[in-house]
Design a protein around this nucleic acid. Structure first.
Lengths: 130, 130
DNA sequence: GTGTTTGCAAACAATTTGCAGAATT
DNA sequence: AATTCTGCAAATTGTTTGCAAACAC
């Protein structure tokens, strides 16, 4: 159960860190393969899952059928472009009291929520206009 | 391209109507099989997709890796139990101005959003307490 | 009769898993 | 030396698709 160091896991973390485009497992795989040409997709999945469990990265499921991964684990919101499918961060503040609001008239406990915004990203918007 | 009547599609719609538990395609399949023992899962998927495209039902993706279907297409919010995985409706009002809030400082257009709430449902909560 | 829908099975895409060998402690 | 991690391939899961026959109009 103890976790040992692995160069592959380090490379995956490194590839992800600082990225703002929320890559999928396959994108990570392709990226890390430059440094580890023999790495397998299974290893990428295993490490992404492990890193997410350890809280070092976040798994996000925006509803496009593929998992995305985010090195930024702080609470923030995501936008998904209906045109190109890109996933971007939004700079808005937390939606205040949203969980408390929801708890009213509900007989269970609510302790989390996710919100995704949809529309057309700046790049696609400009392409449409031209 | 014209849509023709089908008894299977009608049965699927009927099975869904009034349900508040947001069944998956497989649950619909099992349910409708009582009336149509030979119906195939492919037919269920095709009709669910068609009904969603026509706006008669809603597809919802709560992040558990399976699609759920909702006969209620009005704007409302969903809760997902981390214990039993059930999906329930929430009675809260729309979160005001949420899309407008998000559009600030963003160079694209935002025209929709989804929010899911997570926690422990009433039933699981009571089971835990006892 | 023409065109849509069905059941079946095969195809598909994303992700997970079993295993023998390699790497880490 | 003991245990974890890797690469590979096969398995699994959820969903889609091609096709000939059945059904709706």
């Amino acid at each position: 159960m103890a976790i040992k160091y692995s160069r592959q896991r380090e490379a995956i973390k490194e590839f992800l860190s600082g990225r703002k485009d929320h890559p999928t497992a396959d994108t990570v795989y392709i990226g890390v393969r430059r440094e580890f040409p023999n790495i397998s997709l299974g290893t990428v999945y295993r490490n992404l899952t492990l890193l997410a469990q350890m809280g070092e990265i976040a798994r996000i499921n925006v509803g496009d059928g593929v998992e995305h991964f985010d090195p930024d684990t702080s609470l923030h919101y995501h936008f998904v472009c209906r045109d190109c499918g890109c996933v971007q961060d939004l700079g808005i503040e937390n939606i205040v009291n949203i969980n408390e609001m929801a708890t009213e008239d509900f007989d269970g406990d609510i302790n989390g929520s996710v919100t995704y915004f949809y529309g057309v990203c700046g790049k696609c918007k400009r392409r449409r206009d031209s």
